[in-house]
Design a protein around this nucleic acid. Sequence first.
DNA 1: GCCAACGTTGGC
DNA 2: GCCAACGTTGGC
Length: 130
Amino acid sequence: MKSEPDVYSFETLLKDGVGIWDGVRNYQARNNLMAMKKGDRALFYHSNIGKEVVGVMEITKEHYPDPTTEDKRWVVVEVKPIEKLKKPVKLDTIKKDLILQNIPLIKHTRLSVMPLQAFEFERILMLSKD
DNA sequence: GCCAACGTTGGC
DNA sequence: GCCAACGTTGGC
C-alpha cells in the first residue's frame, strides 16, 4: 500500500496507532482494498519521497464506505502498524531482485494498492534484514 | 462505442 | 520540473 510520506507516513501511523486508508479513487486499487480480510498483512511503501518499503501493517477492519466522499463507489480499510523495518527496502533493490520481477509495484507503477504473493511478501521482509 | 483531450500518479 | 503511463471524461 502506497502513500506519499509528506501526506501520510509510516511514522505517523506508528504515532496514531491505527489508521484509515482513505482517498483511494481508482477501481483496481479499490478492488484490492475490498479483497483484504481482517488479520491480513500489508506493506507500507513511501512513494515519491524515499521510494522504499518502510513497514508492516495489519488490516484491523475490512472495507466500508469512504467517509471522505459522498461517492458510494469508494471504500477504506483500517490498519495498524506491526513493525518498522530495520532497513527500508528501496524500489531500486526490488527492481534488481530476481524474485520480485513480477510484482505490480514495478509493472503497474501508478497502482496504489496491490496484491503480493506470500513468497514476494516474505522476500521483501528478507531484503529488509540484509 | 470510439477516441481526443485532459488530469493524475509517480519515477527520474 | 518533466514526462511516461494510464485512467477518466465528453463530444461525436
